[in-house]
Design a protein around this nucleic acid. Structure first.
Length: 349
DNA sequence: AATCTTGTCAACCGCTAAAAA
DNA sequence: TTTTTTAGCGGTTGACAAGAT
């Protein structure tokens, strides 16, 4: 037989914590610690709460050195960089931000940061009926009681050439062209993945270049970051918002059709140019020139996590790789570059 | 002023891997 | 070895606040 049940589910309090409960929990843990056993703790501390609830309350709110309030630009940058590289692994991201909890970062990303980035790339609404049949409202947030139907999701001028191309395919695409130089001589397999940490300084680049990508110095790559626009709508009207990205060459884009992609896209973008978050010629930017997240700056355990995640994947040519089986995680749609003459284009949806 | 819409965030839910019996 | 629970994680909910109409 297994363990005894943790608590009498019918007899535990739920909902917001009172100040009295908070002080009971805080005092108990400060005096006796958790003892590595959250299940036994509430009874010992005189709380009618589930151990799980106590743990969450302590970790997210009561424990010392928790930072509340505004996130700094530096924190924004780290969150965005890591999210771009590893997706919604909030605990890993939180490990890089002392005093911040995974819950906090998750909430911040979902309610503010995502929109903040979006806002940087969305200009004023176009004239009435312009591209009426093409543009869609933003797909997030997923919460069913929100209604974004009337908000514009239209890029600033000039539209990227890619966007114009894709109009021909009647796709709902919002993206921007950005020069993203490829690192020199990236030629990866799952076996030598770890080698790249010495070749490429930015984790953004380090983790995104698929196997077989060759050197490219024309600085004409595209990185787009955002949400899936096809937005499978459930019965209650909510959307599943999947952040994902694509990598492919421009010649592939010119031939691509919506059905072949499997989904259409709406996106916003962050980019990394010359190993730095940098300004785009038309004026929008994220981060600053001397303010980049280096792979080598990361904790060893984070590096290992990133590497092991990547190593699990199969890098055969022209395969679609799911980075994680969990919902709302990054979806890798990796297409091998065809020739060295192709312009390499990286999309980040 | 009343009502409706949208934003925020603490807390809960459900899943998975690991641990315990 | 099998069964059951726990710990930890990420996704989602819902109460409340703030803003818009």
């Amino acid at each position: 037989m297994g363990r005894a049940p943790c608590c009498d589910k019918a007899n535990v309090k739920k909902g917001p914590w009172s100040p009295e409960e908070d002080s009971k929990l805080k005092e108990f843990i400060e005096k006796y610690g958790t003892g590595g056993n959250w299940i036994a703790l509430p009874q010992k501390a005189g709380l009618k709460r589930c151990g799980k609830s106590c743990r969450l309350r302590w970790l997210n709110y009561l424990r010392p050195n928790i930072k509340h309030g505004e996130f700094s630009d530096e924190e924004d940058r780290i969150i965005c960089s890591l999210f771009a590289s590893i997706g919604s692994r909030w605990s890993v991201i939180a490990a890089q931000l002392p005093g911040r909890t995974d819950n906090d970062i998750k909430n911040y990303w979902n309610t503010k940061l995502k929109k903040k980035l979006m806002g940087m790339h969305m200009g004023p609404p176009r004239p009435h009926n312009h591209h009426k049949n093409l543009l869609r409202p933003p797909p997030f947030p997923s919460s069913s009681h929100h209604n974004y139907q009337n908000q514009p999701l239209i890029p600033s001028e000039p539209l990227s050439s890619l966007y114009k191309d894709l109009r021909n395919y009647n796709r709902s695409f919002l993206g921007f062209e950005v020069p993203v130089p490829l690192p020199p001589q990236v030629s990866l397999t799952s076996n030598n993945f770890s080698n790249i940490s010495t070749n490429s300084s930015s984790i953004f680049q380090t983790l995104n270049y698929p196997a077989g990508v060759k050197e490219n110095n024309n600085n004409n790559n595209l990185l787009v970051f955002g949400s899936e626009g096809s937005c499978s709508t459930s019965s209650d009207g909510s959307c599943n918002n999947q952040i994902s990205y694509d990598y492919c060459s421009r010649s592939e884009i010119n031939n691509i059709k919506q059905e072949e992609m499997g989904f259409d896209h709406q996106g916003f973008m962050m980019l990394n140019y010359g190993n730095q978050w940098t300004e785009r010629p038309n004026g929008f930017y994220f981060g600053s020139e001397n303010n980049t997240l280096e792979f080598t700056d990361l904790d060893e355990d984070v590096k290992q996590q990133l590497i092991s995640t990547r190593s699990k994947n199969n890098y055969n040519n022209n395969t679609i790789i799911n980075e994680s089986s969990k919902s709302n995680s990054l979806l890798f749609n990796v297409n091998e570059s065809k020739t060295e003459d192709d312009e390499k284009v990286m999309y980040f949806y």
